[in-house]
Nucleic acid binder design. Structure first.
Lengths: 249, 249
DNA sequence: CGTCCTCTTGATCCTCGTCAAATAGGGTGG
DNA sequence: CCACCCTATTTGACGAGGATCAAGAGGACG
């Protein structure tokens, strides 16, 4: 199977971009945005498509505009671990590095806003707002990676699944503005296998634990991917995390 | 038990600092270094001492000058996962955040080079060299966190131990200049329990796997902490990683 | 209506966690 | 210098949680 050519798409003004205020461009003023606008280009990927293969030369960096992508590491014997889950506004690529360290895959239909790497690096030199924001985002990602390490290293299968569902639930309500609580409905952007790769489990265990949570009334399913969480706090109880959230800033 | 007051120590010139070329100050020129020199202060901690408790107010950031520190997350029922291992030149603290997200503990005697947070943040605004370097270091740390996720999520106990030993071995030879290969001798900077917290195992399993590697001739022990690796490649075979390293830049 | 995928469920195995006890140093006070 | 104690570590026995292997079930699509 070949990596299908991604589609470039009509130009969208940065000003009306849905991730304008969260992505790497968040701090840019209108002048800076104009520069970005002139050098950016969109690329569209279908669910399941590979954006970049580990080890490939990569000449662009970019932001997820819509959809979900994953970073995955594969061991030589085929064991796979997801090491990044990229949601809208998340940044893809590492300035200063020419080859990809991980496979990047679109787990849903995906729209990306891309820059040629050289141009972006030049931007970073000249535009502190960009590199400041990138530092901020990288620190946030490091925090997320650390929470994830706790999940991988210390949580039970059931807690892992609950934690992942809570992450999706939080993200959904974040987009629509509020705090996560009460009844929440989500569409899983990952297959069972991808969830397993995220959580360091097998897909069978993922399936079993989802069934167990369903039987316990923590979640309801409509089809395979559509999940109803009748009571978000009840779900949180299953994650093994502190009840008081444990947030800092 | 109270957190013993750490000791402040005599002033050392940045120019003769052992981490001068790897820490957050690496890119600074001599003028910038002079400013850093005037606002920095050293703090010394003994092995086992806690540097910062999760949730505490923290008014400083800093670099590990010598020794090893760990970041640890504790779940409410006591399960613990190490989420950061800080070696000389690594940066501690997050600019823009006022409370610690994790426990920071000295796992060996530790010397830190500290800055008041406010002053450091001002530095970052005025000195691109500092924030550029911090971005670079944070990206490296994120990469390390991702390798770590593979270890936590997909490796067997034996592979985990081998991987950790390989990490220490690489670090040792890095300091003395070369590539890791052949016969290597290391002193473990972590207790069995801390190794378990790093790897998402119990200390019993850590102990058993170390014994197993010893019986298999992969390592030799002199005392509890002193490890001899007769053949580094033989150890690498036990890590489950690609034989060809898999490095990128 | 059959085929391909994804997902679910069952049966069994095995790695690693848990509980318990023994051992080894290392440091301290006599 | 030696006995004792405290902690870190090792080792053993056993059980449980997930992995593995195997078979079906539910949908989407041609």
């Amino acid at each position: 199977m070949m990596n299908l050519q991604s589609l470039t798409t009509p130009h969208v003004q940065c000003g009306s971009c849905p991730i304008r205020h969260r992505a790497v461009c968040a701090r840019c003023d209108s002048d800076e945005l104009e520069v970005l606008d002139s050098i950016k280009y969109y690329r569209k990927f279908e669910a399941g498509q590979t954006v970049v293969w580990a080890g490939d030369q990569v000449d662009f960096v970019g932001s997820v505009v819509s959809g979900v992508a994953s970073l995955t590491q594969t061991m030589e014997d085929g064991r796979r671990q997801m090491v990044g889950l990229l949601l809208p506004s998340d940044f893809v690529g590492r300035p200063g590095r020419s080859t990809a360290a991980y496979d990047v895959t679109a787990t849903t239909d995906l729209m990306m806003c891309c820059f040629r790497k050289g141009q972006f690096e030049k931007m970073m030199q000249e535009t502190p707002h960009v590199s400041q924001r990138l530092l901020e985002m990288t620190l946030d990602e490091l925090d997320a990676a650390r929470e994830w390490m706790v999940i991988l290293g210390r949580k039970t299968a059931r807690e892992k699944i609950s934690s992942l569902l809570a992450i999706f639930a939080r993200r959904n309500t974040l987009l629509t503005g509020g705090e996560a609580s009460g009844r929440i409905v989500i569409d899983l952007p990952l297959t069972r296998e991808a969830m397993a790769d995220y959580l360091g489990l097998t897909l069978e265990t993922v399936s079993r634990q989802i069934s167990a949570l369903r039987k316990a009334g923590v979640i309801e399913l409509q089809g395979k991917r559509h999940v109803i969480i009748p009571d978000f706090d009840r779900l949180l109880d299953e994650t093994g995390d502190d009840s008081d959230g444990g947030f800092y800033d």
